[in-house]
């Protein structure tokens, strides 16, 4: 039987596309997932936990490994082996942690000889590490042959202000809730104040300090955390599954929206409108 030309051509075209598709499915399948936010504000994190968190950011969200290697000189960026010990010698008068923080926030200030000025400011988009993450990464870098002595307060308050997302996105969010009524929920029916501090309200160390939660977390995260605390994970340094699972169900719709509106006002004492760096 003689096949019509259109059939022959169609089969041929499908075979060609099939080969391409098969090949694309047979090579390494790597997805690019949106990075998760890390919050350590007010947490009793151990040094080991901090270093571990920093290493994960180094390999993941920070995308540091794209250029930097540990124990191997890269073509684009210096080898970071022994960085913790070497950092103190880089710039006279600067401690190791101060040098490392400067290198993360303003990498162009000091360039290692032989390397181009290509490193982005890591607290600006698209990497956009928040203060907690900067703290953790600095600790990890200090741990590479040095002494880990960096504290959260060493990270400038203005750093990482744009971590929650694009400025356009933050500026546009409007909730119909009443922050004042939400504060009442926080201290009253919700009993959040029993575990959390929120600016001048409360002082409990049981849960993370929420004084800057609007700066370091997305609205989506805050809302989901109230509705399903376990599913959103636990901030490093705090015991898991302590937050009541039913908190979201006990609130009325209005109370929930009011509470979220209140939490979104918590931008810390040095809070500024979320700036977004651009090249």
């Amino acid at each position: 039987m003689r096949l019509p030309i259109v059939v022959k051509i169609s089969v041929f075209a499908l075979a060609v596309m099939g080969v391409y598709t098969y090949y694309a499915n047979s090579i390494p399948q790597i997805q690019s997932k949106p990075p998760e936010e890390l919050s350590l504000e007010g947490g009793n994190v151990t040094q080991e936990q901090l270093i571990k968190a920093g290493e994960e950011i180094f390999k993941g969200k920070g995308t540091c490994e794209v250029c930097h290697r540990i124990g191997q000189a890269g073509a684009r960026a210096p080898d970071l082996a022994g960085m913790g010990a070497r950092a103190v010698k880089r710039k006279p008068g600067l401690s190791a942690k101060a040098y490392l923080i400067e290198s993360l926030l303003d990498p162009g200030v000091y360039l290692v000889e032989g390397y181009p000025n290509i490193m982005p400011k890591v607290d600006k988009p698209p990497i956009a590490l928040n203060r907690s993450e900067l703290w953790a990464v600095t600790a990890f870098l200090e741990s590479l042959g040095g002494t880990v002595d960096v504290a959260l307060d060493d990270i400038p308050k203005s750093a990482g202000a744009g971590a929650a997302g694009g400025g356009a996105q933050v500026a546009e969010l409007k909730l119909p809730g009443d922050p004042k009524a939400g504060q009442a929920v926080f201290t009253g029916k919700g009993a959040c104040v029993a575990c959390h501090k929120a600016g001048s309200i409360g002082a409990s160390p049981v849960g993370p300090d929420l004084s800057q939660i609007a700066r370091i977390q997305t609205p989506d995260y805050i809302m989901a955390k109230i509705l399903d605390p376990a599913a959103m994970g636990t901030v490093a340094g705090f015991p898991p599954k302590v937050m009541p699972q039913t908190i979201g169900q006990t609130l009325t719709a209005k109370e929930y929206v009011d509470l979220v509106s209140f939490l979104l006002t918590l931008k810390g004492s040095s809070a500024t409108p979320a700036p977004q760096g651009k090249k």
Partner: peptide
């Protein structure tokens, strides 16, 4: 652009924010 609608300005917070692997992309392209 990865997880950005507008790179560095508007973050993609939708359920589709994951940039798919090449196999999935190839299936769609085909």
């Amino acid at each position: 652009r990865q997880h950005w609608h507008v790179y560095g300005v508007i973050r993609d917070t939708s359920p589709d924010a994951v940039t798919p692997a090449l196999g999935y992309a190839a299936n769609v392209i085909t």
